[in-house]
Each structure stands twice: as structure tokens, then as C-alpha cells.
């Protein structure tokens, strides 16, 4: 399922039972047990995956809270970047939509 047009009633989560992580240097490899594919994540994508694994969130909550999670000022983490990062994780199936 792609992020595509989003509905703020939708909540998203990263389910650690559905992937395996392995770090090599500054990169994290994520093997999706759902798709059987391997993905390479940078530090920020990895942080978003961890952020979404904490508990389900709407996209609005993700955009509003991710900068604080990274402990950086909001202007260093613009909403467009957060949307794109989230969209990439959604596109490859590492985050899932769940019932609220």
C-alpha cells in the first residue's frame, strides 16, 4: 500500500516482527519478511522506522513529532522531507496501516 493520498484517520506502524535489521557502518539493512526484499536505510530512514515502531501514528502526528524524536529543530526537518521518508518506507512495505 502506498502512502499516496492520505487520510488522517489512517494510522501507521512499523511492525518489528515483519522485518530484520542489520547494521553495516552507517547504513542499516532491512529484510522485509513480508516481501522478501532487502533495503538499505540511511540513519534518518532508520530513525523513522524506529519512531514508527514505538506505537501507531497518523501522518500528521508523524510530521509533527519526528523532528522532536530526532532532537533537531523543526526547520531542519521540513514536512516535505518527513512525508518523502515516510512514503519511501510505505512504498517498500516496511510500514503498515493498522486499525486505529
Amino acid at each position: 500500500m502506498s502512502a499516496g493520498p492520505n487520510n488522517d484517520d489512517w494510522v501507521w506502524v512499523a511492525n518489528p516482527d515483519h522485518y530484520i535489521l542489520h547494521e553495516i557502518g552507517d547504513s542499516t539493512f532491512a529484510f522485509s519478511r513480508v516481501s522478501g526484499t532487502t533495503h538499505m536505510l540511511n540513519l534518518v530512514s532508520r530513525a523513522m522506522l524506529d519512531y514508527l515502531a514505538e506505537h501507531p501514528k497518523t501522518l500528521t502526528q508523524i510530521i509533527a513529532g519526528f523532528a522532536a524524536y530526532l532532537e533537531v529543530p523543526p526547520e531542519e526537518c521540513p514536512s516535505g522531507v518527513v512525508r518523502r521518508l515516510f512514503g519511501e518506507l510505505d512504498e517498500v512495505g516496511l510500514v503498515e496501516r493498522v486499525e486505529p
Binding site: H22, D26, T38
Partner: peptide, 27 residues
Amino acid sequence: LADAAMQLIASSPNYQVIGERAFSGLM
């Protein structure tokens, strides 16, 4: 090394089929 790993994965004819065990073995 992460880039090298992705190149190896791309060159593999059976990595996707074996799945999780191939991932763990490669790592």
C-alpha cells in the same frame, strides 16, 4: 561495505528465493 552488499544481492540469482536465511548469512 553496504554498497558492496547491495551489489552482491543484485548479482544473486537465488537470494530472493531463499529469503531470510540468505539475508542473515550474507550479513
